[in-house]
Design a protein around this nucleic acid. Sequence first.
DNA 1: AGCTATTAAAATAACGTTTGCATAAACTTG
DNA 2: CAAGTTTATGCAAACGTTATTTTAATAGCT
Lengths: 339, 339
Amino acid sequence: MGKYVTITEIARQLGVSHSTVSRALSDNPRISKKTRELVKNLAEKLGYHTNSMALRLSKGKSQLIGVIVPDLSISFFSKIVEGILETVQKEDYSILLLNTQESFEKEKEAVETCLKHRVDGVLAAITMQTKNFDHYERLIKYEVPLVFFDRVANFLPVPKVVANDHQSAFNATKHLIDSKCKCIAHITGSINLNNSNNRLYGYMDALAEHGLDVNESLIHYYEFEPSSIDKFLKKTIKKYPNLDGLFVFNDYVANYSINVLTKMGKKIPEDISVFGFSDEPVATYMTPQLSSVKQVASKMGRLAGQKMISILNYDEAVVNEKVVINPELILRETTKVIG
Amino acid sequence: MGKYVTITEIARQLGVSHSTVSRALSDNPRISKKTRELVKNLAEKLGYHTNSMALRLSKGKSQLIGVIVPDLSISFFSKIVEGILETVQKEDYSILLLNTQESFEKEKEAVETCLKHRVDGVLAAITMQTKNFDHYERLIKYEVPLVFFDRVANFLPVPKVVANDHQSAFNATKHLIDSKCKCIAHITGSINLNNSNNRLYGYMDALAEHGLDVNESLIHYYEFEPSSIDKFLKKTIKKYPNLDGLFVFNDYVANYSINVLTKMGKKIPEDISVFGFSDEPVATYMTPQLSSVKQVASKMGRLAGQKMISILNYDEAVVNEKVVINPELILRETTKVIG
DNA sequence: AGCTATTAAAATAACGTTTGCATAAACTTG
DNA sequence: CAAGTTTATGCAAACGTTATTTTAATAGCT
């Protein structure tokens, strides 16, 4: 009990050579039907599992894909991982998961770990600190296919899968404008993160393109301090009593903002329309339910996974390309119906 | 360019045998200091990485730990995975991540995948559907160490790491009682999930132990239908105008419930105190901020990971034991201050 | 009958390590 | 200085596969 059955054991019991067993199991036509069935039956009976370590050593392929994420506790990233898993598992690949916790050092280590494990490819999102890309170049040098998702190194000549944050924010803001909002504030996230910045620019461009002023004092940079939102909203409503729209970079913060506004006696969406971002679970648990931009995490994961599979299984070339996932607005109760 | 450096290549360049190189790299005292340094320098220079496929085949150890989770998009589970990763990475193990999506079939497949990859051990949380455990017995038969976390198969003689949901719910309810609540309702989750049930019993036991009636009509079984909560709360407040406490199995639903109560004109916590569960991010984004039971996900992950490491690296026996993580209440603004 | 094709299966090498055993050279030691 | 011991290294087997080459057995043909 306890020991794994090998091809050699099957061969011994059947009185044939192990190479015959190997071929029989992989349906090689050079083995007679009779022997093949004999082999397969015994393999089944003994509960034979091919030893993937041996298989991999022999084939020189690990069937392993390295996945490097900056922070697995962010639901966006864990959903991406879920999407990747779903896609690559079907093709018999497994995932070597590395969590860098936003540390550049850990990211370098993660790449080394990938190399050590001889992964067949790497899917990565860079940390907020990553400015040097030598470690990724190393992968390229070793001809390990690399695909970036979400947080990408723009100038490396590899495929990238990203969400169109700019367009999403643009469309959300445009929706507020279309529903007759004239004075729209924005709460944005960390200035270090590309994604927040793209959303900010999407907001500004939408305003500009529709003839509304872009007003610095209507923009709040949020950095983990909820009470700053109370202050911002109070100040803003005092200065701009006609405030009738709010676009927030994240659903949690949108939820918080709505609570603050409600306490100040504002009606949502009659007085002020609010648009969130990411369509987190909280969006449907709120009252009123939050209009938001659809979460593209699992789609992003699936697309990144598929790209890798195409490269690995169908010899697609690794080229400098960008797959952009387009936005989809989810309209709920915090925005007015148009028209 | 592109090919990995092997031990044999180093040996060739240095004019020694590959076994000498192998020993030199692993600091075997049988190799002279001079040779050892020669080897190490060249290895460094050539960017040598031990080929883990070969290493594993040779050693008969995969350095891989299978992690089976029911739903990675639930932040509780992704945080557990993060905790596991953090712990096992330090000991040079990698994770083979399997997501069962609450499907029993996928869970069986996941175990097979673990076997196929010759994982050194398996960490698992079962699906809501799992009633048969033959696949896990298979692991035990193959002497693959198994450790359960959170959702466990109670009667299998292996280590388990769980949160004390009963005690947590008991303490949360007791806190409501201590703050002078006399009529406390409870919203519970799926009747199929152990965790919800344990919380339900914790609530009931706390009431009973403090001389309060356990009243079936104060308990609502929530199944993914927010509007059922509106109905429940309205009905309950009509029937029990003295309702002054609410304990909810999950922070999202607590958030929703508070919104409903607020709209009905109830003041939180002056009229009704509310206690949530899990301390999700939303708890701090609410107004008032939600009192909740601390999230134990990453601690659970670390404990489960450590247990596995102890078994694998320090030959700890696989025994039928239960590690219980004790509750910690986070008191915020939805409950009254005691005394 | 004698030769060639064809078919089926066995043998062997290879993948890159670790490891037990062997060996040669250089030291001890009485 | 011969015998034994230590030191430093090499050799070869083993891990479980796949893949290439060889051999053996059978069948088909003139």
